[in-house]
Design a protein around this nucleic acid. Structure first.
Lengths: 185, 185
DNA sequence: CGCACCATGTAATGCGTTACATGATTTT
DNA sequence: AAAATCATGTAACGCATTACATGGTGCG
């Protein structure tokens, strides 16, 4: 699956593994993330398949860069995947919710501390969607006017991330209120 | 991580791998899922660690059952994990959103079909949270009145799933409207 | 008659993370 | 002086999925 995310970025322009990582972090990280090491591994296997090719660009003051380019076969494979109907629900792994599921076994104070910590994290994430992510989409769109339609899609996915964090913050706040309002045993 | 979900269920009562799978499907599947084969593998490694023990219950008309019981060490390990502050955001892998991110490259009709399909799936999931999941929590709470506090937590996690699906449905509906309102090129 | 349910497990494979290894330049 | 950025990669490990293997009972 990661291979399609990588191919997707390479449809815009050739780039290095390092740059792909940066793009992911700035745009898709809230619904699709990846570690740098895994990106390098996946690029290599894409090259073995013939879906991308790579050339070395030598540099003197920086390490050499390996620039990956998508091949026609890769283009084709990516398009096929993109158009393919997706008929499942994406599997979720939400550690906080799992902990809460069993947290009746804990004292309220520990649970409240846990929730407060997560509230802070999600609030930070929310404000990042409202600021950094908005800006990075707008600057890409301004720089390349041909990508206007793409930018509208990117904005829609950003909005998904924002709505998700709003929901998370609301849920945690409700949990905190509910726990505080309950008689201690 | 799955090991803690399994231990969590075993704190309520001893049970088989098969039963753990059923419990997961009925209660935590929307934020924590697992395949049966992985549950068996994890139970075995928990037994090697000494966190659970197992006994065989012979049956004549059905296959024998291996019943797992949590040990004091396992109890301790589970409690430690539960009380541990969770300081990250859970990583997400949302295939639909990833596809949408790149879908400016597709014609609107294909995108609309994709969205409509997912809308149906999420609406079904939503109504399941409002019906089956509500009932299964209530029947567990009625059967074991001592679990009242637990049931309140289960209900909170169910509510999270419901809110999440409401968000998803809303987002897809907005996407459909936006795409329909755009001039075709 | 076929499908779903009960019930457990192994083998092969794939995907992902963490740690390791290197090393100059730029920013704080 | 320390940390972050640029830049690539491998090795070991862990976790998860898919396929394989078995086989009786109960329901529609």
């Amino acid at each position: 699956m990661l291979k399609y995310a990588i191919l997707g970025f390479l449809t815009y322009s050739p780039m290095t593994g390092y740059e792909i990582k940066q793009r992911i972090d700035r745009s898709t990280a809230h619904f699709w993330h990846a570690k740098l090491s895994q990106i390098y591994i996946t690029l290599k296997s894409l090259e073995d398949e013939g879906w991308v090719t790579s050339t070395i660009q030598e540099q003197q003051e920086r390490p050499d860069r390996r620039i990956y380019t998508i091949t026609p076969t890769g283009q084709q494979g990516f398009r096929t995947w993109l158009a393919e109907p997706y008929m499942e629900l994406s599997p979720k792994k939400e550690t906080l919710i799992l902990k809460m599921f069993f947290s009746a076994q804990l004292d309220s104070q520990t649970v409240l501390t846990q929730l407060q910590l997560q509230l802070d994290l999600h609030q930070k994430q929310l404000s990042s969607y409202r600021q950094e992510v908005v800006h990075s989409i707008q600057s890409a769109a301004n720089e390349f006017p041909a990508l206007e339609k793409d930018a509208r899609m990117w904005e829609a996915t950003r909005r998904f991330g924002e709505m998700y964090e709003e929901l998370y913050v609301r849920w945690i706040e409700e949990m905190i209120m509910e726990i505080k309002s309950q008689p201690q045993e």
